[in-house]
Design a protein around this nucleic acid. Structure first.
Lengths: 321, 321
DNA sequence: CTCCTATTTGGAACCGGTTTCAGACCGGAT
DNA sequence: ATCCGGTCTGAAACCGGTTCCAAATAGGAG
């Protein structure tokens, strides 16, 4: 029996006599044989796997996006392989592993930007690749208008009568990633439009981590002329802010209003006012576009903006008089 | 120039004349060449990737474990590939992809049990495999004593004077997974030891999802003789219980005590009393054992139990008189 | 300028599949 | 019994690397 016949049986290919097929299947069972998927991929030039590259998938919003991806892929024959890249180095390695197209047929890059050299390579290899929560002129992208979001959050505070509004942003240079800067820009624009001077001591940056934000918030709230409202660039940072306020005995929302960004699961539980972005939907839609590209249908290389929505709960209120 | 030479240059192998090496590297640059990692794996029989298989990594405790895995692997040369298996079918497929050892060198199976046939295959292929949050007699395992944990939680409530104690468990048959049953057993044992009869209407099951638990809790709290304490099999379910209580206007902990299990991030924020299990540590330790196995050192096939700890916060209090 | 040996180099086999292609086999018609 | 067409089958080439081994080359000694 030749290997060709075995291959035909395994792939349910046409024209194998039933008698032969049975004989092959018996042998397979007897030997407890399973074909090597890697050898198969090598030969087929196709893996039926899509790769997702994302930093800190430990964080709640990333998890939510991945859930969307899983959902979007669930009806397809593709499996998902997630690469967590906690450092620039790991990110480079992930792309080295993936961009040849021999480990995954398509790529979802979430909340990070691939190095420029990789973008070129990906395009040269005609490997389908969708950006989720990131924008690049040469790739299809799913994103939100962070400037508008930052403005939306800040305007909400202004409309409540706040004038001393602080902002806790994210440190920009992580994985060439700049949504936080855009939200900050929205914050500045809202202040400007309302004719409020922006104070440098009200504009702070820290990592996305909760305890860092708590530290920064503690400093902000200890200022001689402390802010009456804080716009945190993410819900996680907003929670850090709330903890700081609680520790200092500052009442929310009576003495301090806090607004976040994302609307992660816990936000509704805790009653956090926030700007909701469709996290789950971004992943689902990204997967949808990727599947379309994988099926050979064309996908426009343009940025698709998902809607933002202000969710008012109980951590914002009128400015104290 | 032969392919052998190129291969030697790429792998920094010995004895390539500098002049030749430079010539090869120039060619590589000129062609923008990158070797196929899959072909390399096929030839080398080694991938430098470890696979993690876990269900619902959407859920907070799984995320925490994965964080531990990432941490445990970070100092090694291995990359992590995560397979989310939301259904039995996907689980089967994940193992089919992984157990030949040509896609990953080692396996971490988290919060699920591999099908028996796969266990056999994994052992036959001598593929290193560690179970995290799961127990199998033929594999090294990292776990906690769920019976003891369930007993610990229940005893805490009993010691506070509660007698009408309900329990919300998990539906057992998901991915051959039974920690919830063990926690329930601990619950029953604690009641028995205290001489409290267990009432069938106090013992309920639901999926791990928050809103399902909320529904069940609402039913429990609407019983004519409603419980004064509820032990939820996971923190997520405890939150559902708290929401139900809040909606019904039942004060916690004055009218109702609630205890969870896991101690996920938000638990401390919300002040949930719970039984802490070392989630992060379980992943880190699993990765550590896997790395040891991958390096050829022996790993005992025994179950390593991590410690549990009762964390008393503000959702439990003395039974109402 | 030879000769000899140590170092470099390239050819070929292999990893484990898929697929092309030509030959083997089958049954029916003459 | 022979021939014919169509259906099955297996040998061989390929995917893209690594590595063994033998041939080619370089450099030092005589």
């Amino acid at each position: 029996m030749g290997v060709a016949t075995v291959s035909r049986v395994l792939n349910g290919h046409a024209s194998v006599r039933p008698a032969t097929r049975d004989r092959v299947q018996d042998a397979i069972r007897a030997l407890n044989y399973r074909p090597s998927s890697v050898a198969r991929n090598l030969s087929l030039q196709r893996t039926m796997v899509v790769g997702a590259v994302l930093p800190w998938f430990t964080n709640p919003s990333a998890v939510q996006r991945v859930r969307g991806i899983v959902e979007g892929l669930s009806s397809s024959d593709y499996d998902l392989m997630v690469f967590d890249v906690e450092s620039e180095d790991r990110q480079r390695r992930a792309f080295e592993l993936l961009d040849r197209g021999d480990r995954a047929d398509g790529l979802l890059v979430v909340s990070t930007l691939p190095p420029e050299s990789e973008v070129e390579r990906i395009r040269a290899a005609r490997m389908p690749c969708i950006l989720v929560d990131g924008v690049h002129p040469l790739l299809p992208c799913i994103a939100v208008d962070d400037v508008a979001g930052g403005e939306m959050a800040t305007r909400h505070l202004i409309e409540l009568g706040h004038r001393r509004i602080a902002h806790i942003g994210d440190t920009p240079p992580e994985f060439r990633f700049d949504w936080s800067r855009d939200r900050t820009r929205g914050y500045e624009r809202a202040l400007e439009r309302a004719g409020i001077a922006s104070l440098p001591e009200y504009l702070r940056e820290g990592t996305r981590l909760l305890h860092v934000a708590r530290g920064i918030a503690t400093e902000l709230l200890s200022l001689p002329d402390r802010p009456t409202a804080i716009f945190a660039a993410s819900d996680t940072q907003a929670f850090g802010t709330l903890e700081a306020a609680r520790a200092l005995g500052i009442r929310v929302p009576e003495d301090l209003s806090v607004i976040g960004f994302d609307d992660i699961d816990i936000a509704s539980y805790v009653g956090l006012t926030t700007v909701r972005q469709p996290l789950f939907e971004s992943g689902r839609r990204g997967a949808e576009l990727l599947l379309r590209a994988l099926s050979g249908r064309p996908v426009e290389t343009r940025t698709e903006l998902l809607p933002l929505e202000l969710i008012v709960r109980s951590t914002t209120g009128p400015a104290p008089s």
